[in-house]
Simulated scan of single mutants.
Amino acid sequence: MTLYNFDYVIERKGTDAVKWGGLTSIYGADDLLPMWVADMDFPAPPEVIEALEQRIRHGVFGYGMASFEFYQSIRNWVQKRYHWSIEDEWIIPSSGVVTALAFAIQALTEEGDEVLIQTPVYPPFNQMIENNNRVVVTNPLLLHNGKYEIDFDDFEKKLQSGVKLFILCSPHNPVGRVWTGDELEKMGKLCAKYDVKIISDEIHADIIFKPNKHRPIANIHPEFEQFVVTCIAPSKTFNIPGLQASVMIIPNPDIREKVQKAQSKVGFHGLNILGRVALAAAYNHGEQWLEDLLVYLQENRDFAMAFIEKDIPNLQVIAPEGTYLMWIDCRRLGLDEEELKKRLVEKGKLALEPGGKYGVEGTGFVRMNIGCPRALLEDGLNRLKTALL
């Protein structure tokens, strides 16, 4: 029996939410059901809300600093969930994982350097590389029998070609893979062989469906800690991305110093007070809420997959092993990306992420956010059926 209720639908319109308020600018209509942006439609854990309310009632919001509790909450969470012992000095705050990617790219590469990503992948990977005048190199994932795999021959060739940095998405957004220990070890050893550093975006690490298990790549082998920057956050896990609190875990002191220097160049000095409070409360008191959430999300996943298999058989769902994002193959419909989007918006009144945003390999796919009450999910699936049948 679960303690928390995820069925309650909360009105989010009029709250400056990108997901609900940005429909007209992105999709040209505001009467759509938004299942695109990767935040959930659940309130944060009550323990987090209570901690924020208590801090707000204090009433004074002067300059703040990270407390012992802040660092301890992160250390304890990483140890308990992933059996990785980390030290306080390894923890470097960042306002978000995308910001952390930018800092690490600036710190660990020079303009014109090549940076490797595995497409289809979260669009800011590509954007942060290009915005910082680096060169994007892709190692496209291979779709075999409904599951994405790594092309290790191509991966090694790209590392040999002079790549300086590899950005890993673990678990992978949008395809939902939770990389196995063997896959992570193979990637890590190849990066070590060719002296390629790794930024590992592990923002979805807590959203894992049984029997899969997340392992931080830095903790796969002792030597990996020396060339991996691990990015984590409570934002996806506890639905608090708007509070802008994340951290980088950087065991190597030279890399850590370079990243901190990149932060100092733009005047970044730490997280805001409420972000720190929410992070510590989530990691200290949110575990039961998360366990209940995982049960609910896995039921959402199974419900959506069964619905599509029965009612929209021309679509193929890539079963997510982690994340609350569902990657759906629409290529059998024979529609180009614009026609697919048009039918979703005009016929289905549904906002989904077009797969082409994630790289050319995503063309013909859509990404659906299933992190919502079951009633919204069922509504979205019926809209998908209306749009595409």
Rank of each mutant, 00 (worst) to 15 (best):
A351T: 01
K385T: 01
E11R: 15
E87N: 07
Q244T: 10
G59P: 11
V136F: 04
Q118K: 06
P216S: 08
P241R: 14
A51W: 00
L290W: 00
S246H: 01
N131W: 01
I105R: 00
G364S: 09
L325C: 15
G96L: 08
N76S: 15
A205L: 05
F227N: 12
G355T: 09
F155A: 06
L377E: 08
I207G: 08
T230G: 08
R383T: 04
I255G: 11
C169L: 13
M1E: 09
Q54G: 11
Y148F: 08
D336S: 13
A107Q: 06
G380F: 07
A245H: 01
I255T: 10
R331D: 07
L52T: 04
A218S: 15
Y8N: 10
N382P: 04
A104F: 00
V18I: 07
N126F: 00
N145Q: 14
K158G: 03
H83V: 10
I199Y: 05
P43M: 05
S235M: 13
K347E: 05
G362T: 11
A192F: 04
I129T: 12
G112M: 09
P46M: 02
S264W: 00
G21R: 00
R177F: 00
N239R: 12
A306Y: 02
K357I: 08
Y4Q: 08
S85W: 01
G371T: 07
K265T: 06
